[in-house]
Each structure stands twice: as structure tokens, then as C-alpha cells.
Design a protein around this nucleic acid. Sequence first.
DNA 1: TCTGGGGTCCTTTTGCCC
DNA 2: TCTGGGGCAAAAGGACCC
Length: 423
Amino acid sequence: MSRGQLRPIGTPTGPPGDDTGCTVLHVDMDAFFASVELLTRPELRGLPVIVGGGGSRGVVLSATYEARAFGVHSAMPMMRARRLCPQAVVVPPSSGAYSRASANVMEVFRAVTPLVEPISLDEAFLDVRGAAKRLGTPRQIGEEIRATIEDEQGITCSVGVATTKFVAKLASARCKPDGLLVVPAGEVVAFLHPLPVGALWGVGEKTEEVLRKLGLHTVGDIANTPVGTLQRALGPAVGAHLSALSWGRDERSVVPHEPDKSIGAEETFAVDVDDPTVIARELLRLSERTAARLRAGGQVGRTISIKIRFSDFTTITRSKTLPEATDVGRTVYETALALYEALRLERARLRLVGVRVEGIADEAVQTRQLQLGEKDSGWREAEQAVDKASRRFGAGAVRPAALVRTEQDGPSFDRHIRGKRDR
DNA sequence: TCTGGGGTCCTTTTGCCC
DNA sequence: TCTGGGGCAAAAGGACCC
């Protein structure tokens, strides 16, 4: 499929104002985090740059194309990335800058259509059906978006234009970086079938392996396999889904805003931990953080779950559903701690702990019976006061006593108050 | 090669009720 | 009274995505 040369621009062959039958755009920023970093550090342009945590256990969050040339890609362990590309400049992530840049590009999208579905900070689907009269064909809209973002934000993006979300997403991936690709309705099957199975949304390492054992290597192979065979190998839902995708069938529409179904926080320790006191303190911190986010969004949740990852990377979860939904950190913590203690881990070495609240609903629509002297109520008011203080004085200004670090807690505290680390 | 942190969705198992 | 099984919700695990 040639890039951007499928049809002459402006010669309608389909419905008026639409030269391809396409209605969906997928916009994907190129090496987003790394590109944002380059805005403030132009001297790094042209160099291999890797954004990622500095610690020994970090992974690559984003890498410039110069770094990718060495085989570096996102989600790769930092250790490995440094080995592959020792000359790379490693930059710690600055999440605030990414959020701001993301908000700016989302604004550009919303100027085109209100039907914007963000998938992450750096990606979104746009339904441009309603924008055609005002702004031209989907291809022209895509080019306009690309030019605007490059002018205003100084970063490039790639745009896939298609009849469905999933084909649009594959199209943007095919024309990366800094490209645009239109896949007209009539060319969907020809576009899809040569692709490797791993290109399909929902096919990761495990599924790919199952498919490989069935002798299926391309999307076309899947298309020519009976649905029943796929379903027996992969389960009814996944099997049917992949079969449909392989023929370009994807009913999902562009939905502007889906509320979160769960909110959580987790942390990988710098070194494995077996001390129950340290683990309990971490559960408290994560519970407070999660509950604060619930309150900030005016939400409550009923199911509390914890996640434990052992030093060998095996992972378990435990959950408990409460009679009443809550947004109180203390309640989240007490439930999380009880779940942890019930495991009776006997000082097993843990790599990660996490806390998550599921079954989320708007606090306003919940009938709030808790205010009538339930044990939550006192904590709730206290935590709301903390929220208020945090907004005025900054996060962490007020914390549970167990989270106030003491001198023997080590270097990170020292660094914090003394500004340097020399003891 | 040694694997982050934020999520979603699907499947299987289990316990409960009738 | 015992047993089977349908239906359901919760719990647990796992694959996957960015």
C-alpha cells in the first residue's frame, strides 16, 4: 500500500464530502515522551534519547527513532536498552510536561470534532463524519491536524484514516513516523491479510504463540480459519473477535468519554522487601493515594483489591467487596491490610505491592448512608481536610504519622531535606 | 532479558441460593 | 433428605494495551 497516494485528493467517489468511505482517524504522536523532552532540550535533537526510570528496575517509556535504530523500544528493561545503546542519553520522565502536551493536542482534535476518544496521553480516535462539510475529506482533515500539531506543539504525529477504529490504528502504525495513510473501504482486506497476526489488537505474546502452533502466521491465515477452530483454541470471545477483525469487521464506535472502572496505585520496590512493617506502610501510602484520587474525581468504589508480586515475578491478587462504597483512605487501607495479613506470607520476598479500588460509581449518585455515625465518617472529614491542605500547600503537606519519614529511613529523606546526599 | 504503572477485558473457579 | 444443576456474584488469574 503506497503511502498517501491511494486516491487523488478532492475527487469524491463515495458519499458527498468523503473520498474514501472513511470516517475514523487514529492520531498517534511519534515517540511522544521523547519528543516532548526534546522541546526543552533541543541540543539532544538527532541523538539517541531514552526516557525511562533511572533505577535498576526501570523500563523504557519512550525512545527517539535514533535510539530505536539500535533495537531499543518501549517496555524494554532499561538495563538491556543501555547495553544495546550505551551512548544513548537517558532522561527521567517528567509526567507533568506530558500531560500538558497531551491536553494541547487533544484541544486540536476537539477543534475538529467533539467525537474524540483518547486512548492514552499520546493517541486518540476521531469520528470525522460531521466535520466533512466544514473541513474537507478525512485525508485533508488528517493533514490539517498533522500540520497544526507540528506548528503549534513542535512535535510530529502519524494519522491513520479508515472505515473502522481498528484499521485506522493499524494504518497509523504502518505510516510511522510523521506519515498519513488512508485505507479506503475497498482495500481493507488487501491491507490486512498480509500483516502478521501480532499486528491485530489483542494479539500479544501468548496468543501469537497459540496461533503459531496452529500454523497461522498472517491475518489472512486467521481469516481463512473456521471461527470454531479459533474459539476452541483461544476461547469464545477472543476467537470470534479475531475472526471478525481479520475481515476488517469492527463495530466499536468512537466514544468520547468512558468513566474509569477502577483506580489504583502500585509500586515496585527498588529491592525486594520481606519486612511486614515496610509492606504495611507501603499499603497505607498506596491506599491514601488511591482514595485521594477517588475523592478528587467525586467517586466511590466498593471492591478493594491488593496485588502482590513475589521476587520470582509470580503475581497474585486478593479482593474484598464491601457492603458500602467508599472513598476513605483509612477504609481502603484497613481492607487492604486485612487481605495482606490473611495471606500469612511468612516474610516472603516481595517485589511489588498494589492497591486498587474497583466497582467505581459517582459519589453523588450513591446513597450516602455512611454519614450517620458509621465508622467512615470521622475519617472522611479528616481526609477531606487533608485534601484541602494538599491543594493549598502541595501534595504530601499532611500525611499519616506512619508515612512521616524519620532520620533512619535513609538517603531519600536526607536528600529531601539537605538537598544533597553526603553523609 | 529480566521484566513500570496505569488500566481493561475475559475466563475459570468458587460459593451460595433455590 | 439427598442430590443435581441453573443462575448469579464474587474472587482470582491472566492476557493485553499504552
